[in-house]
Design a protein around this nucleic acid. Structure first.
Lengths: 149, 149
DNA sequence: CACAAAATCATACTTTGGTATGAAGGGAAA
DNA sequence: TTTCCCTTCATACCAAAGTATGATTTTGTG
């Protein structure tokens, strides 16, 4: 966490310096502000989106729990006990849900902001714990065990 | 937690100091510009974060919709009409059910006493008709459409 | 019967999935 | 601080899935 914050800080610093540099160069030479302002806007919008998604990623997990409660009304109860018994981690469960949603590994990776390899690792461990060989089997078993709706 | 806050504060402080330093040493003029640029940056960062949050919220909505579909899964009625409408053949439907059961193409081939290639052909046609690319998606869609329990 | 729709299979490829193994870093608890 | 678990990622390799195309055989229906 320390390093993350540090890296964020440094990144922001570098960004600012770059902007300053741009400001100096373009402003002095061309006096064209439109491009400059536009660039800043786009850049910081992207930074903002990125930061927003990154920061809210963990909140999505909470959302998932809320969904679980919602489903409860339609007689689905997340079998958290079994989840612990099988030592299925939070991330693995997340991947499981997305697999059940019909997503490919690549799509899951994009959605969770991790690499394809990471998704493969998660799903592979998941399959071990569920004692299955394929994702379709995993979905079947997980549904029957009440691990997913 | 205190440590994190402290480090974060120090990082920000260093950043600010760096910026001030740069400001005075390299870019000596146009403090008005600085303020302007800073305002834009902050503004669009916030816009970005807001956009990011918006995007995240839409995902929640999708999840809720999936939950809604769940309710109908208990009493299942085969939607034969739709089956004909999509011109899904008997064999294709059979394959679909086995796919949903988590079987591999090879296992399906063995169970139906046909070759692996035949199963591939059937499933491929099926995916076309269901407008999906993968078996997991096919299962999801077929269930929501009432083509399989 | 004739004709169309289904069902079967093959060959050849491309894309995903899944396994094995090793490794690095963060977080939480002892 | 050290240890353990979780998460992340990489590389390499093999298996399964899916696509494209073309061909032959059944089968049901007018």
């Amino acid at each position: 966490m320390k390093k993350k914050i540090l890296i964020y800080g440094i990144a922001l610093g570098l960004l600012t310096i770059t902007l300053k540099f741009l400001e100096y160069k373009i402003f002095i030479k061309d006096h064209v502000m439109d491009f400059y302002v536009g660039a800043i806007a786009v850049l910081f919008t992207m930074v903002g989106i990125w930061a927003g998604l990154k920061l809210t990623r963990k909140k999505e997990v909470i959302v998932v729990k809320e969904v679980a409660v919602l489903v409860d009304r339609n007689n689905f109860v997340l079998n958290e006990n079994l989840l612990k018994q099988l030592s299925i981690s939070k991330r693995e469960h997340e991947v499981l849900e997305l697999i059940a949603g019909g997503l490919s590994n690549q799509e899951i990776a994009d959605k969770l902001f991790v690499s394809l390899n990471t998704v493969k690792t998660h799903s592979s461990r998941l399959f071990e714990k569920l004692e299955v060989n394929r994702r379709t089997q995993a979905v079947e078993k997980a549904k029957s065990l009440g691990l997913i709706p």
